[in-house]
Amino acid sequence: MSDIFTLTPDEGDGGEPTPQKKRGRRRSKPVIALITLASVLVGVIVIVGVVGGVYASRLANSFNDNATKIEQAFPEESTRPAPAPDGAMNILLMGSDSRADATTIDDPSSSDQRTDSMMLVHVDADRENVYVMSIMRDLYVPIPGHGSNKINAAFAYGGSPLTVQTVEQLLGVRIDHVAIIDFEGFKGMTTALGGVDVFSPQAFSTKGGFSYQAGLNKLEGDAALAFVRERYAFADADFTRVKNQQAFVKGLADTILSRSTLTDPGKISSFVTAMSPYLTVDKEFDVGTIASLGFSLRSIDNSRMHFFTIPTAGTGSIGGQSIVNVDQPGLDAVKAALANDSLDAVPIAQ
């Protein structure tokens, strides 16, 4: 069994040992990064599908021209599951906390780059539903060639290829596309949209002085960042934070699909322009792929976007560090549903 090491603890979590000597870097916030990534992908895909025509092509080209491409995003083909025969698509979203050295973001050697936040986006074959599954950062899983560890160790051990291999091995399905994001464009995105209406099931406050009411909150800039980052206000910490992240993406999808956004070319353009420079995607996730996917999802609305968290069986401790245990029966049900494109039959995915 490999040693456990903590990757990218939040403020106040203590030290951060890594698999190699730390390099100087500009820190960012992986939780915010992931929410931003889910948001911008939902936004770009839906907008391209809905608005259509030359304008949509310009938006897609803006995304393609500004996003960074990963040359080596996937593991060796011999280690991978077969592509889905029915046309379903799986996209792995990752938030990295170190983008200072862009040339190593797809480097399969060990590094100090980390992905404490992950979501799997499953687009069903008939393009009627989109499922977004959050993967807990401390989930304790096998990492090929490195024993068992927290899933956020995979990127530090072997970049995007090893992370994809770890997730594919865990879920038993092929990852078709990969996207990584830096959080820096988050404020610009929320400002470009004029704020995002987000539902919170409970009132809470942060140490930074932000307060949120139970019910609907209009979030923009620093208030939006604090909402998706906060965990100390909750008894179950990361579990509620993940739910709040999902609530934000739901709110953003509603905002994007609203008539006030879709009929405002300036707002749409500002949204795509603000975010695309902070994206890194596999080289096949290009204009054509985005346009095709967007067109196929042109009839989707918020009611057809489903958010859930990978099944877990509580927390534990290994080597003095907290981990999240896999709920194996629950995971087996999700794996079977992903393989059969039948997530609609899994209660937690509804």
Rank of each mutant, 00 (worst) to 15 (best):
A67S: 10
L171E: 01
T103E: 14
S342F: 08
G147E: 04
F234Y: 12
F155G: 02
R80H: 09
G43T: 07
L7N: 09
S96W: 02
D197I: 07
P108W: 07
S110T: 11
S269C: 00
K22W: 10
V178A: 01
F227G: 13
A192K: 10
S160T: 10
T309V: 10
G185I: 12
M189Q: 07
V346G: 06
D106I: 07
G52A: 05
S296C: 03
G158Q: 06
A100R: 07
D222K: 12
V324F: 04
F74I: 10
A153C: 14
M305G: 06
S57E: 12
A223W: 03
V40A: 04
S296W: 05
D332F: 09
R127H: 15
D126R: 15
T36D: 11
A33L: 06
G145M: 12
L338F: 08
F308N: 01
A223L: 04
D301H: 11
V132F: 03
L225S: 15
R80V: 01
Y131A: 00
V281N: 00
A154G: 01
A223T: 10
V42T: 09
F271T: 00
S258M: 09
T280F: 15
Y140V: 08
T163V: 03
D327F: 12
E71A: 09
P142R: 14
V141T: 15
G95W: 05
T261D: 13
G208C: 10
V173A: 09
S296I: 02
D176C: 02
I143S: 08
I318S: 03
G145A: 05
L120P: 04
N325F: 07
V324M: 15
Q169F: 00
V324I: 13
D301V: 06
N129T: 07
P83V: 03
V31L: 02
Q321A: 13
S317K: 03
V51K: 01
V51P: 00
L225H: 07
L93Y: 10
M305Q: 14
